[in-house]
């Protein structure tokens, strides 16, 4: 388990991370979601010992990044943002270099390289120079170096950014496959990315944790009002307005009786569900309900609310 405890990071006097706390459970894929400049990369760089925390600590099982940087790095694979690679190296030589740096036994190296070539689909390019590969293939090389020592933890910083839709789908698939056996922390500023790969998500904004939970939990916690759209026959505007008498929490958003079937849009908080009463109200008035549909605030709205409304991006 990874525990991020009261993690704070200053760049000079700028506070990039402010007392953040969250945990990654063994075997889960945790999405780390936040707009540009939220502090995702900073957090991951502290986890991988590229940066030191200003305050707080990160614990991985019994180790922590301040005292046991080596032990933690040993058991972790990292795909940095922008995926820096030695462009003038041949893919195979590069993987061999990483395998040796990772202290993989000399007589096992061949097999391990073979395995990651298989898993990451690198067969076609294994003897090519990294610099000439497509972005998608470079990303696969980045993933291959991150898993070559079969670490139990994978840290992936925006692994699909800059890829075309096909490559995105492929890399996501690959991450999901890897995630079956590993603890994965994957960052993104795109909600769909996290929805597509992660079991749970932590939303970070301006260096603070804004939300933490599974998709459903976050929806339940943050969804706002329910929107009810109806189409009614035989209704007139005056009478329609009285529908809000059912419950004063019901707000009429829009009435349009210009056409034969009147359109009505209602909004009410998700703490109540007045659909039955509305139905009876309509029946009592001898209106005929042609259509009634309910929509909820989407997770996208939730994410936007949690990030943009609080000041949003501080990248400049």
């Amino acid at each position: 388990m990874i525990r991020i405890e009261n993690l704070t990071k200053y760049y000079g006097s700028f506070r990039a991370l402010d007392q953040i706390n969250f945990q990654v459970q063994d075997g889960e894929i945790l999405g780390f979601l936040g707009p540009n400049g939220a502090g995702k990369t900073t957090t991951m760089q502290i986890m991988t010992s590229y940066l030191a925390p200003s305050e707080g600590n990160i614990f991985v099982d019994d180790y922590n990044v301040i005292e046991d940087s080596f032990e933690i790095r040993n058991n972790l694979g990292y795909l940095p943002e922008h995926n820096p690679l030695y462009e003038d190296m041949i893919v195979y030589d590069f993987l061999k270099f990483v395998a040796k740096m990772r202290k993989i036994d000399d007589n096992l190296i061949k097999d391990r390289i073979k395995e990651v070539i298989e898993v990451c689909g690198l067969k076609r390019v294994i003897h090519r120079e990294i610099g000439v590969l497509s972005k998608g293939y470079k990303q696969r090389v980045g993933l291959a170096q991150a898993i070559i020592h079969d670490p139990s933890i994978l840290i992936l910083d925006e692994p699909t950014s800059g890829l075309d839709p096909n490559q995105i789908a492929e890399i996501r698939e690959l991450i999901k496959t890897l995630g079956k056996k590993k603890t994965v922390l994957i960052s993104s500023h795109i909600l769909q990315e996290i929805q597509a790969t992660a079991d749970r998500m932590v939303i970070i904004n301006e260096g603070k944790i804004a939300a933490d939970g599974t998709l459903d939990e976050l929806m339940a916690k943050f969804r706002g009002d329910t929107l009810l759209e109806m189409e009614l026959k035989n209704a007139d505007e005056k009478k329609l307005e009285s529908i809000s008498e059912i419950d004063n929490k019901i707000k009429i958003v829009e009435i349009d009786d210009s056409k034969e079937g009147a359109k009505l849009k209602l909004e009410y908080p998700n703490t109540i569900d007045p659909r039955e009463e509305i139905f009876e109200f309509a029946v009592n008035n001898e209106w005929k309900i042609l259509e009634m549909s309910r929509s909820r605030t989407s997770l996208e709205d939730v994410f936007r609310k949690l990030t943009v409304e609080q000041g949003g991006s501080n990248e400049n």
């Binding site: 010992s49 590229y50 790095r73 990292y78 940095p80 820096p84 990483v98 740096m101 990772r102 202290k103």
Partner: peptide, 10 residues
């Protein structure tokens, strides 16, 4: 940026 890659190896 490869320094980030290199220094995060053990």
């Amino acid at each position: 940026g490869t320094m980030e890659f290199l220094t995060t190896l053990p």
